[in-house]
Design a binder for these strands. Structure first.
Length: 300
DNA sequence: CTTCGATCCTGGTAGC
DNA sequence: TGCTACCAGGATCGAA
């Protein structure tokens, strides 16, 4: 399940192996892989051919590659450009493969390039929750941010993330803390795994109302979100250079370092209490019943 | 406006 | 062995 750290590893791979190359041919092998593109897969492919990819960008779990001149390099172009936007969903991978490698079972989109390098870009996605699409830029954005994700909040690793505004939103909302962490309009890049990990580190129960979070608590929680993401990046990002073929979101490198997610009935690494799994929003929440006490509900 | 549940998908696995 | 049921889960949409 690619969350921010996995997507960042993919971004680095795209930057290294795809940015700067010119598209020669696009094959869309599954219609669902081209998302919210009104004019269909054929138009998507036609519009990409001949374009060159700019730097690889990321916000939360979204990736994009601006086409043609990038705003920050050519401010006069800021008015209207196009970016290729990608989301890996739950099972998506972006692979840079030798053209000799046989097609993957779930290969959805292939991009061939107009150069002599041996590699092509492949979007592979078993469950087809992910997809690619083309979008105009948000006016004035220096990175060609696609307008389709203008509503996605900055992520916690973004230097421009507004911590005070995040805290104010938590206090204002009548929701619970894990819901808030997964709300991509408040903070992006956090999925079920890193939400459970950060809450465990912060000793907060997932059903804690956000309105009860003091500024020190929300600051600490945000720090834990950042820490666990940096740790995952440190574990997964380092092996990247020698594994460039795995420009994907499925490296699994973080599995061994998880403290909460997936550890039902296993001992808490702080207090030894058996962790619990609870059904939550059609998924699961893992927590320590001793370290992460449920909120006290006042009588109505 | 905010909140919340249903929905999309398929491979792996548990249970009978 | 073969079948069914369930699980994983991000984002979107529509209802309340």
């Amino acid at each position: 399940m690619p969350e921010l750290p996995e997507v960042e590893v993919v971004r680095r791979g795209l930057e290294r192996w795809v940015s700067g190359r010119t598209v020669a041919e696009v094959q869309v092998l599954h219609p669902r892989a081209v998302r919210r593109h009104v004019f269909g897969a054929a138009d998507f492919a036609d519009r990409l051919v001949g374009e060159s990819f700019g730097p690889a960008c990321r916000r939360g779990k979204y990736l994009w590659l601006p086409l043609g001149p990038v705003p920050r390099q050519d401010p006069s172009a800021a008015g209207g450009g196009t970016s290729l936007l990608g989301h890996l969903g739950m099972s998506g991978q972006l692979l840079v493969q030798s053209r000799d490698v046989p097609d993957e079972t779930h290969l959805r989109v292939r991009v061939r390039f107009a150069d002599s390098q041996d590699t092509e870009l492949r979007f592979v996605d078993q469950r087809t929750f992910g997809g690619l699409s083309l979008h105009g830029w948000v006016p004035g954005d220096p990175n060609g941010l696609p307008d389709a994700i203008a509503h996605i909040a900055r992520d916690p690793l973004d230097p421009a993330f507004d911590e005070a505004a995040f805290h104010a939103a938590l206090r204002r909302r009548r929701t619970t803390v894990k819901r808030a962490l997964l709300d991509q309009s408040l903070i992006s890049g956090v999925g079920n795994i890193y939400a459970d990990e950060a809450l465990w580190r912060a000793r907060l129960h997932y059903d804690r109302p956000t309105a009860t979070l003091t500024r020190p608590l929300s600051t600490a929680l945000l720090g834990h979100v950042r820490d666990v993401m940096h740790a995952a990046l440190a574990a997964g990002g380092t092996s990247f250079d020698s594994l460039y073929v795995n420009v994907n979101g499925e490296s699994g490198y973080f599995d061994r370092s998880l403290d909460a997610y997936g550890r039902e009935d296993e001992p808490c690494r702080r207090c030894g209490t058996a962790l619990r799994r609870r059904p939550w929003m059609n998924r699961s929440s893992y927590y320590c019943p001793r370290c992460q006490r449920p909120p006290v509900r006042r009588a109505a």
